[in-house]
């Protein structure tokens, strides 16, 4: 019903990536990526550092546009629309594809303003107080901060800050949530809370998460993509997609030896 007939992508697919190469200037950072990311599932990207998993992630909301020289070849479609098509506006795209970053990055404003900001610039017409409360509740933070909404977003703990950033991202009612190692700066308890949250959020959003933590990938994700890196002649690292399959398969019965070595902790 909502699929562009010119593509062979099934309904139920949020991102369709085919033969994509990611460049920084003339440097090929990630090569030959082929992925179909399913709707309302959690897809995890794992792999050693430098393998380009964040690069692939950051192209889904075209955040890499901000880096001079970064560009992509190949097909990246979002619900059947080419992401890098001229008619697609990056600002509007980012409204629909939310993102949570590696380190909590709340704005130096009040907790309330942190959430209201995105809604305001995107012309939200509903009741702002209600939106703030709803978003904070969804991010399982409301009970902890409801009495200090006027305080700075930087005044709460790291784990709370990260949930504030999640609340901020879901306040603008995105369709997808990209998470770039969202727990790497958090303690184990905060990590657990964020993981629980992800399970709840996947009812509503497609989630793509980059993680260094294989236990986390196996705990939360439905699909897993394993990336690896090889050294180039010039001394840089070039990433490529090794294997993409349901998480069960990747961790128990992978097709590639490299995947087996990585998930069993033999390298990386």
């Amino acid at each position: 019903m909502q699929t562009n007939p010119s593509t062979a992508v099934g309904a139920g697919t949020t991102f369709h990536v085919a033969q994509a190469n990611y460049y920084y200037g003339s440097f090929l950072a990630v090569s030959n990526v082929n992925l179909d990311i399913p709707e309302r599932k959690i897809t995890a990207f794992i792999g050693p550092s430098g393998c380009g998993k964040s690069t692939v992630l950051r192209c889904f909301n075209r955040l890499n546009d901000l880096i001079p020289g970064a560009h992509v070849e190949g097909t990246i479609q979002y619900r059947g629309v080419d992401l890098y098509d001229k008619s697609v506006d990056a600002t509007e795209l980012r409204r629909r594809i939310g993102m949570v970053f590696q380190k909590p990055n709340p704005f130096p404003k009040s907790i309330y303003e942190n959430i209201a900001f995105g809604a305001r610039i995107n012309g939200y017409k509903g009741d702002m107080d209600e939106l703030v409360e709803r978003s904070l509740r969804k991010a399982a933070l409301w009970e902890e901060v409801k009495d200090k909404l006027k305080e700075s977003g930087l005044s709460i703990s790291g784990g709370q800050q990260q949930r504030l950033c999640i609340a901020r991202a879901i306040a603008i009612e995105p369709e997808v949530l990209l998470m770039d190692e969202p727990c790497s700066a958090l303690d184990p308890i905060s990590t657990l809370r964020v993981e629980d949250l992800m399970h709840e959020l996947k009812e509503q959003f497609t989630i793509v998460i980059v993680t260094h933590n294989m236990q986390q990938a196996s705990r939360v994700s439905d699909m897993t993509a394993f990336y690896n890196a090889q050294a180039t002649e010039k001394g840089g690292k070039q990433g490529y997609l090794v294997e993409y399959a349901p998480t069960q398969t990747i961790f128990n019965n992978p097709a590639q030896q490299a995947t087996q070595d990585y998930v069993s902790g033999r390298f990386g």
Partner: peptide, 26 residues
Amino acid sequence: MTATDPNAFSQSSSAEQHFSSDLSGR
């Protein structure tokens, strides 16, 4: 800037009723 087609994406949520970002004005 870029010519924007507001209907470039198909809708899956009711979000559009809540947001009206006047992109060209911005």
